[in-house]
Design a protein around this nucleic acid. Structure first.
Lengths: 353, 353
DNA sequence: ATAATGTGATTAAACCTTTTATCTTATATG
DNA sequence: CATATAAGATAAAAGGTTTAATCACATTAT
């Protein structure tokens, strides 16, 4: 059986020239190596005939560039767990990377005691973190390895030298939600967080933004009554609804709880959006297929992912940016789960007179 | 600033021993290198102090093992495009790999003229293909590189030496569908394929299995009338429904078209499952959140992915299997989109007497 | 006393590439 | 004609690891 691929040395000896000459012709920018054009074409011929493929390991060893970046997930399993969000993030990074002929390797649950062993072993030119760990001890250890790094969709940590942040404006998103609902006449809104995610920075920022926005709009908001923590299946919806709460709209901190609410509401024959407007955060294709389609805040996650990737590549290539954080504005995808409050509809028609 | 990591050489000189000794103590199985236990512990100490991290590039160059496998997608973009299926596949592979301390790199659209350049450049120990290309020219070129390879969820190609196949039983899946519907009293079923996927082997096998199963069950089936090609949004549904077709059930070749049908049906106030039973292929979390939840054939995709991964790892480690194809049985997740045919309900109650 | 065995340790080759330094010969310039 | 420059080409080091080969010495067996 023919050998799969051959090396520079083999091509060189077959063509009767030096290794340097072959390297130069096939890839090189080496200044002082010069090859006549006749030999060059001969070399190219031989290389093709011998099925030469450069060994990237050797090259990387020499150049200390691997053209590979690592995408680190806190827990990669989460990707198949529901939120389409991470899928789009992954895809956004991948597309940008592939377009620039970089490779992508996926890491999960990096050993926080020895991040160097996972990350500084030579195979990566840089890393993108989704939800970078917040443990300061870890951050410091990681910073020590000096690998170019962009944190995507992660809370900013004070002492994180050399880390660049690409985030979405969670507070702004909450403002969009409240403004939208206010326009539809809603006066009292329930904010729903999720059991296992009460510590998530994004959840907290959305909550804070929510309170802020209600106040800015002059709406009543009482953290005790208007913010609840439910399971991801929103099983608590029925109990809450039974209490005949004053709220006419419900804002779920992510698309998952909002969808859960939709499902529970359906079961109880609560008509969304007639009886209750529902709105979520993270507008993905998933929101289009709920019934009714879910009005939701859109993080420009693809754009964020592209940006983070380009930023990292720039970093790797020595273009250091002075801006260590970039925040992307969110927008609102209005679908069919939000509507005018019935009582308000009357009012507006009177007001129109 | 302290250097991030150090090398064997540095540790060796600091500890006053040879490089070989350090290598042996820290990783080695080298027979003829021997180190006294006192020196060994000294070396370990120094290594920790100097923050030694083995350079995997150098190691791989030497050993020609990278402990990295490539997962090749025909078009990675498809992953965010809808079918949760690929996400679960990816996750299945990743989990299995991570558990065995292998790394995962993702490839997309490998250059079919020069697969060697993408795949045999030294960085991969093996590859898993999702939907391996069927171009025989390419398959041959790829086989030439001699990289261990498992095709996951791909049609078998006759001349593909050295390729192992892990597939799901599409035909069997169609049998499950038809049997289920038959039991519910359906006599005439429509099979819906998708515009851009009419050539997809899976689609064809499901179609063939459908015809086969109908005949086995003694149901009328006419390829002209009972098999249609629609867009992924099932926009043709309305036209079809207007014709008052004889079908009481509809079988979509994947979960996407089936979901599309559900949406269109909703718009037309066609009651699923009362007026029409709908069933799909690929039962993912996505199917749970449609309204009504979609009855669908489940490919054990995680299991398949795990199996494919283990198989590849075995191949890499020289355990050659003699079985070149393994087919996984599918099962049926019965949800709420299928029900007894109204006319049949009458019959059964009579029959029960 | 000599040979055989075992222990502790080192040297150096090999993996394959990139790239600087060096060398030779030919051509152009003064 | 002498010298500077350019072109054509090679040798060799470096990058960090693994590992076979070798060596020195001490201990044990013959």
């Amino acid at each position: 059986m023919k050998k799969a691929v051959s090396t520079l040395r083999e091509v060189a000896s077959e063509a009767g020239v030096s290794i340097a000459a072959v390297s130069k012709v096939l890839h090189g920018r080496g200044e002082s190596v010069r090859v006549s054009s006749s030999k060059a074409s001969e070399i190219r011929l031989v290389a093709k005939r011998l099925n030469y493929v450069p060994n990237v390991l050797a090259r990387s060893l020499r150049t200390s560039r691997t053209h590979t970046i690592g995408l680190v997930f806190e827990n990669f399993g989460a990707i198949s767990d529901g939120p389409q969000f991470y899928v789009e993030l992954l895809d956004g990074v991948a597309q940008e990377l592939f377009a620039r002929h970089y490779r992508l390797t996926i890491l999960s649950e990096v050993d926080s005691e020895h991040p160097a062993a996972d990350l500084a072993d030579g195979r990566l030119d840089g890393v993108i973190w989704c939800k970078m760990p917040t443990d300061p001890h870890f951050v410091e250890r990681f910073a020590n390895v000096g690998l170019p790094c962009v944190a995507l969709h992660a809370r900013r940590i004070d002492s994180s030298p050399g880390v660049f942040y690409v985030r979405c404006d969670n507070r702004g998103g909450s403002h969009l939600v409240v403004d939208h609902l206010k326009k539809l006449g809603h006066e009292r809104i329930l904010f729903v967080m999720e059991q296992r995610e009460t510590e998530t920075p994004d959840a907290l920022e959305r909550r804070d933004g929510f309170i802020e926005a209600c106040r800015a709009q002059g709406l009543t908001v009482d953290p005790e009554q208007d913010i609840v923590v439910w399971t991801r299946d929103a099983d608590e919806f029925a109990d809450w609804w039974d209490l005949r709460p004053p709220h006419t709209a419900l804002y779920g901190w992510n698309e998952r709880v909002a969808a859960g609410v939709l499902a529970r509401a359906k079961e109880l024959h609560v008509n969304v959006p007639k009886d209750l407007s529902v709105i979520g955060f993270d507008s993905t294709v998933f929101c289009e297929s709920t019934l009714p389609p879910l009005t939701a805040v859109r993080q420009p996650i693809r754009q964020m992912a592209s940006h983070a990737t380009r930023l990292l590549l720039d970093l790797i290539n020595g273009h250091v940016s002075s801006q260590t954080e970039q925040s992307f504005a969110s927008t609102l995808d209005v679908r069919q789960s939000t509507a005018i409050v019935p009582s308000y509809r009357g009012k507006t028609s009177k007001q129109r007179l």
